[in-house]
Nucleic acid binder design. Structure first.
Length: 643
RNA sequence: GCUGCUGUAGCUCAGUGGUAGAGCACUCCCUUGGUAAGGGAGAGGUCGACAGUUCAAUCCUGUCCAGCAGCACCA
């Protein structure tokens, strides 16, 4: 006698086990038609599943976010059927829904190409139109293995073998085709709809392990209706337009070339943005009580052995030798061991703690070639790195202060939305279990004190300690992990850092590793994409162009530009013999935030006609007014607050 | 690193087994024009590198390098 409790609190009783379909019908024809699936006691399930006991039931319709996930997962099944129909002999493996869509991994000697997409999509639409019901069956394990083995589906058979004994082997049929799947699914293939599109093919390792065979992955996107699909495709175009590699080239900010793979040639304009950001960070650090240091690029291998990095990362380090000397040095891949050397230099007292040591540390790592990606992943980069040497008692207070500083910085840089993840001990790690217990507990407690809410990111900590990862969201909804705070009880031990306590005995300090931007290179990439190259005035590589209309006004244009430079603005005069239309266009395309147009009139009156990027309006100001307005606006946010 | 794709002028791209083209950008000339492209001329390329096939290779084949997408990696 199952009693079904609905979200509105009403209860319906049935004589025996009932399917969701029946329950929905009992409520109304409209719901029966709209209900795609259901949630039984919080568990998503097929609507045709029968409910045997009392339960809370909620029906999933297209309006619910869960429907998207179902549509995408079912689209993957439809894709797999279409592919096996068109390309016999292709083995199926897995095909989940993902953010924005779905994929399916196939095994086939010949990879697919995007030219195959039209045929596959057409076949998928055919399958959708057939409205095949998704039917769930539970098979005996051995029979399922034998079935897939016989069909030559060895990957599927392997999956079944590895499923826990307790789990049902569920098979979903759609007409003639079937697949091993946990479910749940929609009612029929028709519910998938036609708002899907195959996007790209790529390789992917079987079970995500690089020692396994490479499969061919077909990516698709799927939505509830055409409008959603179109909006998504538009957003992709938008992201492409914001690509920092493209904008970097267009604005002349930086370039890469073969002779220095994965390293940035910063051009004057790009370096200006970099420098402004670095100056800003330096002020923030000073304000928060950091002392800035600088440590060597090339450091003897022995130090890396002592820190444990040689053992774990030697293949990712650039190593240098000198012919006349029997020594191996490595370009530093990180700064911590060097900072410990400064800490160790001379006796340290507990009175000096917490000691906050910062460095804009230039590091080099031999990143795998396939990982390189514009400014986002490079081999030579500069961290806004710092290490806080402190006592265990100071961890919480330092965390509070760091989190506050990080939020200040992100806010000043225009990022409002920040999430935090807590990454705990990885499989490969240094330090005893007891030390890890202590470090994780300390960091958790510090979060509690700092009022930081986090989600877990299990097993993703650094090899020497747990970490907080700070993830910010950009203007078009993408997430970037930038900041980090790590509690390290291991390195101080390994590198023998100590201080003299109140009891005049030696003690081990705790080391907090922290960064806010992560690396300047990557963060500038993010900033470029965040603003689509249209930087706020204080960060813009060229802040103002003074464009003359006639050559009679050229000297005045030079004069105005010089006056702006005198108050610290980055201003250029464009006194070329060209039409004003061409100049306005060129500097607009170049994303210069402010164009001051000057002709005979302005030259005579001592005024400028100001035009802002993205607007066609112009405002005539006296030169003094323009200077006052612009120099205020170009003041970095931290300095403006004080003023 | 793995799989697939790509590599021709600064940029975007066309093209051919007989050593190359367009548009924009660049230089010069004309034009002095009031807010997103005024006109003309010129210059610019070891066709990613190295081998091989061929009478002949930018084009075909192989190796390597780099880039792109995804995977794996990210102290």
């Amino acid at each position: 006698m199952p009693a079904i409790t609905l979200p509105d609190g009403s209860v319906r009783s049935f004589d025996g086990p009932v399917t969701g379909t029946t329950v929905a019908e009992s409520i109304g024809a409209g719901l029966a038609k709209a209900a795609l699936a259901m949630e039984v006691d919080g568990q998503l399930s097929d609507i045709r599943q029968s409910i045997k006991a009392d339960a809370k039931v909620r029906f999933i319709t297209k309006k619910d976010p869960e429907s998207l996930e179902l549509i995408r997962h079912d689209a993957a099944h439809v894709l797999a059927e279409a592919v096996q129909d068109l390309f016999p002999g292709t083995q199926v493996t897995i095909g989940p829904s993902i953010e924005h869509g779905f994929y399916y991994d196939f095994f086939r000697p010949e990879p697919f190409t995007p030219e195959d997409f039209a045929a596959i999509e057409a076949k998928m639409k055919e399958i959708v139109a057939r409205a095949e019901p998704f039917e769930r069956e539970v098979w005996p394990r051995d029979a399922a293995i034998a079935f897939f083995e016989e069909r030559g589906e060895s990957f599927k058979a392997e999956l079944i073998r590895d499923l826990p004994e307790t789990e049902d082997i569920s098979i979903y049929r759609q007409g003639q085709w079937l697949d091993l799947c946990r479910g749940p699914h929609l009612r029929t293939t028709k519910d998938v709809g036609t708002a899907f599109k195959l996007m790209k093919v790529a390789g992917a390792y079987w079970r995500g392990d690089h020692r396994n065979p490479m499969l061919t992955r077909v990516y698709g996107t799927a939505w509830r209706d055409q409008k959603e699909l179109d909006a998504y495709l538009l957003q992709l175009e938008e992201a492409e337009k914001r690509d920092h590699r493209r904008i970097g080239r267009e604005m002349g900010l930086f370039h890469f070339q073969e002779e220095a793979v994965g390293q940035v040639f910063w051009h004057a304009k790009g370096w200006r943005v970099y420098s402004v950001l670095q100056d800003y960070m330096r002020r923030a650090q000073t304000r928060h009580g950091y002392q800035e240091v600088r440590t060597p690029q090339l450091v003897d291998r022995g130090l890396w052995e002592a820190s444990g990095h040689w053992d774990k990362y030697r293949h990712h380090m650039f190593v240098a030798t000198v012919e006349d000397e029997d020594k191996t040095l490595a370009l530093k891949p990180m700064n911590c061991p060097c900072h410990v050397q400064i800490f160790r230099h001379g006796l340290r007292s507990y009175r000096e703690l917490p000691l906050r040591m910062a460095e804009f540390g230039a590091c080099h790592r031999y990143e795998p070639s396939g990982a390189l990606h514009g400014l986002m992943r490079v081999r030579g980069f500069t961290q806004d790195d710092a290490h806080i040497f402190c006592t265990e008692d100071q961890i919480a207070a330092e965390t509070v202060q760091f989190v506050q500083m990080l939020h200040e910085v992100y806010q000043d840089l225009g990022f409002e939305h920040v999430r935090v993840k807590f990454a705990d001990r990885p499989e490969q790690r240094a330090g005893s279990e007891a030390v890890w217990d202590k470090a994780e507990a300390a960091l958790k407690e510090a979060c509690a004190v700092a009022g930081v809410e986090y989600e877990y990111n299990p097993g993703e900590g650094a090899f020497y300690g747990p970490k907080l990862e700070f993830v910010l969201r950009d203007a078009i909804g993408r997430d970037w992990q930038c900041g980090t705070l790590q509690v390290d009880l291991v390195l101080p031990e390994r590198l023998d850092a100590s201080y003299v306590g109140e009891d005049s005995a030696k003690h081990r300090p705790v080391m907090l590793h922290r960064a806010i931007l992560g690396s300047f290179e990557r963060f500038l990439g993010i900033l470029i994409e965040q603003h689509a190259g249209r930087f706020p005035l204080w960060l813009a590589p060229v802040q103002v162009v003074v464009a003359s209309i006639v050559s009679d006004a050229a000297p005045y244009a030079q004069e105005v530009a010089a006056a702006l430079r005198n108050v610290g603005l980055v201003a250029e005069a464009d006194a070329r013999n060209d039409k004003i239309n061409a100049k306005v266009r060129e500097h607009s395309v170049g994303r210069v935030p402010v164009i001051l147009v000057v002709g005979r009139r302005e030259a005579e009156e001592g005024t400028v006609a100001m035009r802002r990027l993205g607007s066609q309006a112009q405002e005539v100001l006296t030169l003094d007014q323009a200077i006052a307005t612009l120099s205020h606006e170009a003041t970095p946010p931290d300095l403006r607050k004080k003023a």
